[in-house]
């Protein structure tokens, strides 16, 4: 057992070193290509990376050793060690590659401000003529966020009990249910609402309904996670006490778990609605309807004064939502 473990740690250490050095050499080859327009073959990168990784693992205190085999003594300051220099090189080369990939250009940032002049003028001279049109679109956005949240609540509420470690029995069935619910929630949450909006705008057509569905799916996944974490944080004492009275599992959940989570659940839900209103704007850009769609149309027609009024109205709504939700959440916490 112990021997296996040591072998495993050594393997992990060496693999880490190999990957790090392949990455470093990959970065070097990118920079050579970028600056000198000379192409370095991929197999060279891999071969030299593997070689460098092996050498560093055998010769010195490499990063892999430092992470996975901490029994090895480290002496002195980081700049006197091999792993210290390796980390420094890693960070430095990552930064340089990043700078080049992102095409950072400080000249453009400071010297070409006048290009944005039109937008700035528009923002500070908003076109009040389309105020009512904006209001209608905003209402669409707020209501679609509200519906998305409302539809997400019961499903997330139900699912969260099965995604809470402390409620699922430590049996094969319990563990399986827990892992499946958790995994699905994680996957659905890692797909951004904007991607869901693209899918649904094809599915049900461009408009607020597509946006609502996108936010709903994302909200279910997020709320399931937040709710279940809240359940995992409850005081286990009352659960024990209710179980001891001879209550069945559902009674135990209703009487010992639900009263403990109801106010944090409400707080999270209001917070989620707040997030959904903001996301609804973005989702609108890709076919989710509402103010986002209007903003996209006006922006593409370069009507900066119309864009201006939309931006102001979004800002005001987000600001109000933020304040209201903070107030309500504060009140809930006192309850």
């Amino acid at each position: 057992m112990k021997k296996d473990n040591k072998l495993k740690l050594n393997l992990q250490a060496i693999l880490t070193d190999l990957l790090i050095w392949i990455y470093i050499l990959g970065c070097v080859s990118f920079l050579v290509n970028h600056w000198f327009e000379k192409i370095i073959q991929t197999n060279f990168v891999v071969i030299f990376g593997v070689a460098a990784g092996f050498i560093s693992f055998i010769l010195g205190l490499s990063i892999g050793r430092k992470i996975f085999l901490p029994t090895i003594k480290t002496e002195g300051k980081w700049y006197k060690t091999f792993w210290g220099w390796s980390v420094f090189l890693l960070l430095l080369i990552t930064f340089i590659v990043g700078w080049n990939l992102v095409e950072v250009d400080l000249y453009k940032l400071f010297a070409k401000f006048q290009n944005a002049g039109g937008i700035m003028k528009g923002i500070f001279n908003p076109n009040m003529d389309i105020f009512m049109q904006c209001l209608a679109a905003l209402a669409e956005t707020i209501y679609l966020a509200l519906l998305a949240t409302a539809f997400a609540i019961p499903l997330a509420f139900f699912l969260s009990f099965f995604a809470a470690r402390n409620l699922m029995p430590q049996t094969f069935l319990g563990n399986t249910v827990y892992i499946i619910v958790r995994t699905i929630a994680t996957i659905f949450r890692s797909i951004e609402a904007i991607v869901w909006a693209i899918i649904f705008s094809v599915w049900v057509g461009i408009g607020p309904f597509a946006g609502m569905l996108a936010l709903m799916i994302h909200s279910i996944a997020s709320l399931t996670k937040l709710y279940s974490e809240q359940i995992e944080n409850i005081n286990p004492g009352p659960v024990e006490a209710i179980k001891a009275t001879g209550a069945n599992t559902i009674q135990t959940w209703i009487f010992a778990v639900v009263p403990q989570i109801i106010s944090p659940f409400l707080a999270f839900t209001i917070y989620r609605w707040d997030i959904n209103v903001r996301m609804a704007t973005i989702v609108g850009f890709v076919g989710g309807g509402g103010i986002g769609l209007l903003l996209l149309q006006q922006q593409q027609m370069l009507r900066w004064q119309n864009v201006g009024i939309i931006i102001w109205m979004i800002a005001i709504v987000v600001w109000i939502m933020d304040m209201v939700s903070a107030k309500v959440r504060g009140k809930l916490q006192e309850m």
């Binding site: 004492g237 009352p238 024990e240 006490a241 209710i242 179980k243 001891a244 009275t245 001879g246 009487f255 010992a256 009263p259 403990q260 106010s263 309850m335």
Partner: peptide, 17 residues
């Protein structure tokens, strides 16, 4: 069987709210 056995705890274990 459990309902024949009342249990009392150090931390009372009531549902606070």
């Amino acid at each position: 069987i459990r309902r024949k056995i009342g249990m009392i705890f150090q931390q009372f274990n009531l549902i606070q709210n």
